[in-house]
Each structure stands twice: as C-alpha cells, then as structure tokens.
Design a protein around this nucleic acid. Structure first.
Length: 717
DNA sequence: CGTTTACGTAGACTG
DNA sequence: TACGTAAACG
C-alpha cells in the first residue's frame, strides 16, 4: 500500500530483517525476535514509520508487558518522529481497565468498581474460609490462602475446571477440591456484590464486553487501526482472543516475541499463542530477527547451548558480530555468605577496571535470594536499586493508607473497610465485622460514610468519630488526590507509629505517596494506577548511579554490560519444586536463558555448593543442571576463591582480615563452624544478627538466636 | 465471657 | 511473613 520512499533517517541503522519488519504493509505480522536482536528498536521504528506514512498517532495502539516499557518505547518513537505524541500505549490490563471504566455499564458493571490486587484476593480467600467455616483445625496440609488464590487464578487463566487444574498442577491438593470450589464460588459472589474485580476479571470482562457489543467493537476497530504487541510469548488465551476482537475489522496486527523467552506459563501464559498466530491470522508474514547486538560470542555460545536443549519449535540461529570476549565464569562459593562476599569483590574489581555501577546487574530467581547480598552491599556502602520481590504498594502501611481512599471511591469495598477499621484500638476482626454490619443497613451506598459515626461502637471508641470525620471530608468533594493523600497521612501517622515498631522507615515510605498521587488526574485514576502498574518506591535518589539487583522475571527485556547471576545451583535454579514437573522445568530453562542473555561483555555465575533448607537442613548442591550438562570449554570453571580463612577452631581468635569491616570484628566463629552449647548440644553457626547476636542451628533444638556475650559456645573439635 | 493482643513456631518463587 | 494458640483485656 505504500509506494512512497521512506525517509532515510528513520530506517538508518536497521539491519535488513528489521527494516523489512518495520516497513511491511497492512495485515498480520509475526516477528520472532531472539534475545538482544533489537526487538524494541523494531517496534519503535515501526510506530514511527506508520506515523510517517500518515497514520494518525491516535490510531496506533501499543501493548506491552509493563506500562514503563510502553512509556519508554513511546518516548523513543517520539524522538524519531514528533507526531508520535498521541500513540496509545499500555498493558492489556490497563487497556481493559480503561474500557471497563468507560463502557462497563454495558455488561452491568458499576462505574465505581474497585480493582483488587493479589494481596486483596488472598485476604478475601481468608474471609471466605472464615465465613464458610471450611478450615479444619489441625490440618497441616490444608492449602494456604495464597495457594487457594493461585489455584483459582490459574484455573481461570488456563481456562480449565478446578478439578483439572488441581490434577495437573496441585495433585496433592485434590482432596480439598470441594473446599477450593466453595471458596471460588463465594469469591465470585462477593466480588459481584461489592463491585470488586481482580486482575483476571480485567481481561475476561473486557472480552465479554467486546464480544457482546458489536457496536463498541466496531467503534474501537475504527479508533485503533494498527495494533502492536510486545512480548507476545507471555500472553495467555484470553489476551490472544482480545487481540482478535480488537483487530477483527482491519487485521493490522504486529506481534513480537521469542518462544525461547517465555517465562510466565506459571500464571497461564500460552506458548502456543505464538505458534498458532499464523493459523489464527491467515496471511501472516513471518519475520525472524537473528542478529544479536548485545552479547559477545562466548556469552552467546553458552546461551545458545542452554536453549538448544529445550523443546521448541521456531528454530533461530543467533549470531553476533561483537566478537570475542572473556568466557563466562562459573564460581563455586561454599555457601551464601561466601557468595555475597565474592560478588562484592567482583563488583569492586569491575569498578576498579573502569565500569560504572549502572553497567552492572546482579540477577537471581526469587526476590529473597538477594537478601544476604543486600546486607553486604549496605555494609560496604555500594548503592543499589532492586527490582522484583515485594512492591511498594504491597507494603502493609501503604495498603493501610490506600484503604481509606478506596472506601471513599467505592463505599461497598468491605475488604478495605475491614482493613481500616482494624487499625483502630479495640477493634479486631469481630469488631470490624460488626461495624460493617451496621453500615450495610444504610440505604444505598451513599449512606455508608455518614452512618459510621452512629455505629454503636462509636460510643466506646472515640477514634471511630475521628475516622468518620476524615472520610466525610474526603468524600465531600473538591479535593485533589494529593490533598486527599495528605489528609489521610495526617490521620494515619499516629496509627502507623503505634502499630509498627519500625515506624520511621514506614513513615518515610508514605511520604512518597503525595508525589505519586500528583501524577494521577482523579481519585479513581490514582487507585487504578497504583494497583495496575505498581510503581517502585523511588526512595532518596542515590548519589551515584546505582548497581541493579533484579529477579530474572523483572529483568526481561533489559541488558547490562556486566552481569552476575546468583544461586545457579541445582535445587535453587532450577528450584526443587519444579524438578518433578517437566513443563515447569522447561520454563526454568528458559528463565536461565533469559538470565544469561542479559549479559553484554562479562558474565559471572555463582553456584554455591551448600544451602540450608528449612525442611531438610544442609544440602550439598551441584551446579544448575542447565550449566552442568553442557560440553566443556563454554565456561571457565573457577576454583572457589578462599576469601576468608578456613573455618577452624584455632582460627577463631585470629584477627579478621581488614576487608571484612569493623562490625565483623566481634564475630568469633565463621559461618558454618560446628559448635557445642552446654544445654543445646551440637550446632552449626548460621550467621549473625546485629552486632551482638549469633544464629546457631542446633541438631536437636533447631534455629536459635543467642547473645554472643552470654552464649557459652565452644568450637567443636 | 468473648475479643483482642502478644507470642512462638512453621513455612516460603517468579508477577 | 502468617497463622494458631494462650494470656490479658474490658
């Protein structure tokens, strides 16, 4: 359709395959883009190219995995072409949210619905179990709230019945099918009654909305004439159907993905989406991007070998012209502490050699895998930012504060009522239920806030009146989100101080909320923004460009010249629970592949030889099977550097090396030392807590924290 | 007396 | 961290 000569500047620097993808005409396009092959670049240029061809910016929809990714891409497109300013971008969930706010009435959804985050869902599971009286008392095996919430969500995302979901993914929980099913039903009812919707609903209800409303579908088809989707390998079935509905009229759909980098099957992503795309959209043009611009040859060789052992369908042959570099190194520290110290040493050495901290990243599988290293980094004064793990808006105190805003936006949100009522002294679960019961008797949702002050409990508990006054001020209208946050902050500060003993830190977190609220137009938008795409706590801007710590999942799409991978030991990565399940193990392999391919010039992998498991105690761990099964020569096997003296009883009194820092001077036994205690018997030193406490695991008494100056410990010979 | 709060112990992933 | 139990509260 386009016969014009494209503006040369826009296509400059693209390779042939990229250029082909960018300039393809109308119709469905599937781009298979290996790691580091300029996938983002291709999408960004495609957007700019379309605009240059005369497609209005508002007619382009860009769907990405995080809102941040969308913003980054759009700002890059804007640099390429100024008219890109109006391009619509976001995640599937935020798109669903926008459509449901605007048109939810068509499927009977109240305009003031509240979106539940996963923590809210867990709360509701707990509530359902209580209400239904389902939880037997002493049953250790009864699934956790979190597990039940996961099962329900997984069953929806995989679009399987609960029984099938349990059979496939939680066979040991099959005896609890009836209870899980009852909770699921109760959960659905409660959500409907209280105008609450969860993440999954954002997708399924949007599908329902579009499917049942042809007119709206056509209107949207006219609005967004070109749809581009990033990370297509991580979409699930309902997302694929949403795309079909949105692109129904024009079929101008470009999806970009890499089957080798699919790492979200655990929450319902369908690798098949990417394979089925050509048959769902006949006439699909397939483009493969295979030239890697990120990694040197040795890093690519290792990555290719790891993924070559996976079962996959789209054959790619990644190559690089970046040439040779150092081989990836595999270190075997003895255990966690050694790993942390060796990593710190490596970071220091990289810095000495001229690398900036911002060019270095440490990746790991689970959020908590870096706790020990974080302690070490803080002690050494190395600034870092961490991605993944517990997010800012999931912090208890942030949720406390947000609950107040949520009941103002949706007075039927009893989950939030419960949360904020229980903050008051003298009100526990029962008290909160009683107050909510009183509120429900009010006619219509508008009366809830006003009735609070007249609750019978208000006579006894003065704080209830204070709360009522606050909520009425907030609901009174005329306040911006920032002003609302500040009002609640003033009210909540004393509560926070009395509830948490580490309140200074928490109050500091809360101070960031007004700035966040300032970015949203109204209260409803603010609540949705924080739930849908949780912002990270910014904290004080570090003086120096910080080091990056990240889970592998959160590192998707990113790259660093110098990469360090932690815990590449079999049992941790892959993790024990996945070893039994072939599909899960395949996903672990892809996760390792994603981790390795983040590296540009240098790659150091640490695989501690021992780890202490809560269940099972100390275990020796070989290196990750994904690295161990490879031909020789891909990696340099490093002997574990002995950073510290071999733990031996006689060394206990020896002066600590200077590099250990002054606070460790008082640590008489290196971690791992076998010790003896007059009453607890034999044990092993696990670590230290503060300056004066030692953590010992005793064979017969388990983990104990002892005061160093009192504990009569003796090294065991 | 029922509730609330304080405490000790078992248990963990990824978004 | 989150839950179950027991003491303390009102």
């Amino acid at each position: 359709m386009n016969l014009f000569e494209p503006k040369p500047s826009l296509l400059d620097g693209l390779n042939e395959a990229q250029r082909y993808a960018v300039t393809l005409g109308d119709g469905p396009i599937l781009v298979i883009a290996g790691a580091g092959t300029g996938k983002t670049r291709t999408l960004v240029h495609r957007v700019a190219w379309l605009v240059e061809q005369g497609v209005p910016a508002q007619a382009i929809l860009l769907l990405t995995f995080t809102r941040r990714a969308a913003q980054e891409m759009l700002s890059r497109a804007h640099e390429l072409h100024p008219d890109c300013a109006g391009v619509q971008g976001g995640t599937f969930h935020s798109l669903g949210h926008r459509l449901l706010r605007a048109h939810g009435g068509l499927i009977g959804l109240a305009a003031h619905f509240t979106v539940l985050d996963p923590a809210d869902v867990q709360q509701m599971v707990r509530g359902a179990l209580d209400e239904l009286g389902l939880k037997p008392k002493g049953d250790r095996r009864f699934p956790k709230n979190r597990t039940i919430a996961d099962i329900i969500s997984k069953s929806r995302n995989l679009e399987l019945g609960l029984e099938e979901t349990l059979e496939l993914h939680y066979p040991h929980l099959l005896p609890y099918l009836d209870q899980v099913a009852a909770v699921a039903r109760h959960f659905e009812q409660t959500k409907r009654a209280q105008h609450l919707i969860d993440y999954d609903d954002l997708l399924f209800l949007t599908e329902k909305l579009l499917r049942e409303n042809r007119g709206l579908r056509q209107e949207l088809g006219r609005r967004w004439r070109h749809i581009l989707v990033d990370e297509y390998q991580d979409t699930n079935a309902v997302q694929a159907r949403l795309l079909e509905l949105l692109a129904e009229g024009h079929r101008n759909l470009m999806v970009v993905g890499d089957d080798a980098q699919s790492i979200y099957a655990f929450r319902g992503a369908r690798l098949q989406n990417i394979f089925e795309f050509p048959s769902r959209f006949p006439g699909t043009r397939l483009v493969k991007l295979e030239q890697n611009y990120r990694s040197t040859q040795p890093i690519l060789d290792l990555s290719n070998q790891v993924i070559a052992r996976a079962i996959r369908r789209y054959e790619k042959n990644l190559f690089t012209e970046l040439g040779e570099g150092p081989r990836p190194e595999l270190f075997r520290p003895r255990e966690q502490k050694d790993q942390s110290r060796q990593v710190v040493r490596r970071i220091r050495r990289l810095k000495d050699q001229g690398a900036r901290l911002s060019e270095i990243a440490v990746l790991f599988r689970a959020g908590r895998d870096s706790f020990d290293l974080e302690t070490e980094l803080r002690a050494e004064g190395i600034p870092f930012v961490k991605y993944g793990g517990i997010r800012f808006v999931e912090l208890a105190h942030v949720k406390d504060l947000m609950a107040h805003l949520r009941v103002v936006a949706n007075p039927a949100d009893f989950l939030s009522w419960q949360r904020l009522l229980m903050l008051l002294p003298g009100i526990g679960p029962k008290g909160a239920q009683a107050v909510i019961g009183h509120l429900v008797q009010a006619h219509g949702p508008g009366g809830y806030l006003e009735r609070l002050a007249s609750a019978p409990q208000a006579k006894r508990i003065g704080e209830l009146k204070e709360l009522a006054a606050l909520l009425e001020r907030l609901a009174g209208g005329g306040l911006t989100p920032v002003e609302m946050v500040e009002e609640v902050l003033e009210y909540y500060q004393p509560i926070c101080t009395r509830t948490y003993d580490d309140y200074p830190r928490r109050l500091k977190d809360l101070e960031e909320l007004p700035a966040l609220a300032a970015q949203s137009e109204g209260l409803v938008e603010f609540l949705a923004d924080t739930v849908l795409d949780p912002p990270d706590s910014e904290g004080a801007p570090p003086q120096e460009e910080p080091l990056t710590l990240s889970t592998v999942h959160s590192a998707k799409g990113k790259e660093w010249p110098h990469l360090i991978i932690l815990w590449a030991s079999d049992g941790r990565f892959p993790a024990f629970p996945t070893l039994e399940d072939d599909e899960a193990l395949e996903e672990e392999r892809r996760l390792m592949y994603v981790a390795l391919t983040r590296a540009g010039r240098s790659l150091a992998i640490y695989a501690p030889r021992e780890h202490y498991f809560e269940a099972g105690g100390w275990r020796r761990l070989p290196p990750s099977r994904f690295l161990d099964e490879l031909p020789q020569g891909l990696m340099e096997y490093k002997q574990s550097e002995q950073v510290f003296p071999v733990p031996s009883p006689s060394a206990a009194a020896a002066p600590a090396p200077a590099s250990r820092g002054s606070h460790t001077q008082k640590r008489p036994y290196p971690v791992g030392t076998l010790v003896e205690h007059p009453s607890f018997g034999d044990g092993k030193v696990m670590g230290y807590k503060g300056a004066d406490k030692i953590i010992v695991h005793f064979t017969r008494f388990g983990l104990k924290i002892l005061l160093l100056r009192l504990a009569k410990l003796r090294p065991k010979t």
